[in-house]
């Protein structure tokens, strides 16, 4: 088992400017669920910035960043009924996650003032490789 962490910080004003400048960016970066969750809330851009930071934090924990064929919407930050965020993966990111033997991903998000921050923890258990055996232990 291995534990990897990732963290990312985003300036909310920067995210706001980019979203204003590039009309298509909102759908390129965020799923419809994320846009719906954040768009209807106060400081929606701050919440979107935190979700972008969370996506980047997850990709950093995988050690890939935004890799080949990956889309930002392949990492979705889903908000539970009590506000706890969780991660749903799709497409190439899900494929990379499977190859890494991901067992669990947890994220934490926050934003205040002009800063949004997120960290991610990825627990992996690499798939067994043919011919490899677990080291023996604990014999009495």
């Amino acid at each position: 088992m291995a534990i990897r962490v990732g963290v990312d910080v985003v300036h909310i004003s920067r995210m706001r400017r980019l979203l204003d400048q590039q009309p298509g960016l909102r759908t390129e970066l965020f799923t419809s669920g994320e846009r719906r969750t954040c768009g209807e809330r106060r400081n929606g851009v701050g919440r979107l910035a935190a979700r972008f930071a969370a996506k980047e934090a997850v990709l950093k924990a995988f050690g890939t960043g935004i890799g080949p064929r990956m889309r930002w919407i392949d990492v979705e930050i889903v908000t539970g009924a009590l506000g706890r965020p969780s991660v749903q993966l799709y497409g190439e990111v899900a494929a990379v996650s499977a190859r890494r033997g991901t067992q669990e991903i947890d994220v934490s998000l926050s934003h205040t003032g002009d800063v949004a921050v997120a960290n991610a923890v990825v627990v992996t258990s690499p798939p067994d490789r043919p011919g490899e055996e677990e080291p023996s232990c604990c014999s009495s």
């Binding site: 990312d8 985003v10 300036h11 920067r14 995210m15 980019l18 400048q21 590039q22 960016l25 970066l29 972008f52 980047e56 960043g65 935004i66």
Partner: peptide, 11 residues
């Protein structure tokens, strides 16, 4: 450069 910078640069 961070990832959000790349979005800005490429735009």
């Amino acid at each position: 450069a961070e990832s959000i910078d790349l979005l800005d640069i490429l735009f």
